[in-house]
Simulated assay, not measured.
Amino acid sequence: MEKRTIAGEAFSYGKRSFFLDFMVARTGSNYIQITKRELENDGSFTTRRLAVFMDDFEWLISGFSSLLHSAAHAGDKACSVHALFSQPKQEKGQSGIEGWDPALRPRERLAELGAQALETKELIGSGSREASAVELAQKLLCSAGGDLQKLSLLSLSELSSFKGMGTGKCCAVLSAIELSRRIHSPLPKFGF
Rank of each mutant, 00 (worst) to 15 (best):
M1F: 05
L136N: 03
F11H: 15
K77Y: 02
G114V: 03
Q138S: 10
F22A: 12
P102Y: 05
L141E: 05
F18V: 14
T167S: 08
A25E: 12
V24S: 07
G75M: 05
A117W: 01
G127C: 01
A117V: 00
V173I: 15
R182P: 00
S86V: 05
E98S: 14
S12I: 02
G114E: 08
L153W: 03
S44E: 13
A117E: 09
D76M: 07
T46L: 07
G96A: 04
F192D: 08
L179A: 12
S17K: 15
S86R: 09
A117D: 09
E98F: 10
G145P: 00
L140G: 13
L153T: 05
E119S: 06
A78P: 12
A131H: 14
I61F: 11
A7P: 01
K139T: 13
F192E: 11
A51R: 12
S155N: 11
R182L: 11
K121L: 07
L141N: 03
R182V: 02
G93S: 06
G164E: 00
S160I: 11
F85H: 03
L123K: 04
R105P: 05
L50E: 09
E40M: 10
R26M: 06
R109C: 03
L136H: 02
T5S: 11
A144N: 09
G145F: 01
F19K: 13
F57Q: 09
L187R: 14
Y13E: 14
L84R: 01
M23Y: 02
Y31H: 11
A74V: 02
F85A: 15
F18E: 13
K89S: 13
L39N: 04
F19A: 08
L136K: 00
F18I: 08
S152K: 10
C171P: 01
C170I: 03
V24C: 02
L151T: 04
V134S: 01
R37M: 14
L159T: 02
T5C: 12
F190W: 12
D42K: 03
S70I: 00
R26Y: 12
E98T: 02
L174H: 01
Y13W: 15
A172F: 05
K150F: 02
G43L: 08
T35Y: 01
A10N: 13
P188C: 05
M1Y: 04
G127E: 04
F19L: 14
R182I: 06
R109H: 03
S66L: 07
L174R: 11
S70T: 04
S180E: 06
F45E: 12
E9P: 00
K89P: 05
A115P: 08
L151I: 12
M1P: 08
R49Q: 15
G93M: 04
S155D: 10
H73Y: 15
R105N: 09
D56W: 04
S126L: 12
I32C: 10
M54I: 04
F192I: 12
R181S: 11
E122I: 00
K169W: 10
F22L: 15
E178L: 12
F11E: 10
D76N: 15
G28W: 01
E40I: 00
N30R: 14
H69E: 15
D56I: 02
K77R: 13
L148W: 09
T35E: 14
I34K: 09
F19H: 14
S62G: 11
V173T: 10
L50R: 08
D147T: 05
Q116L: 01
A83S: 09
G14A: 09
E130A: 15
T47L: 03
A71F: 02
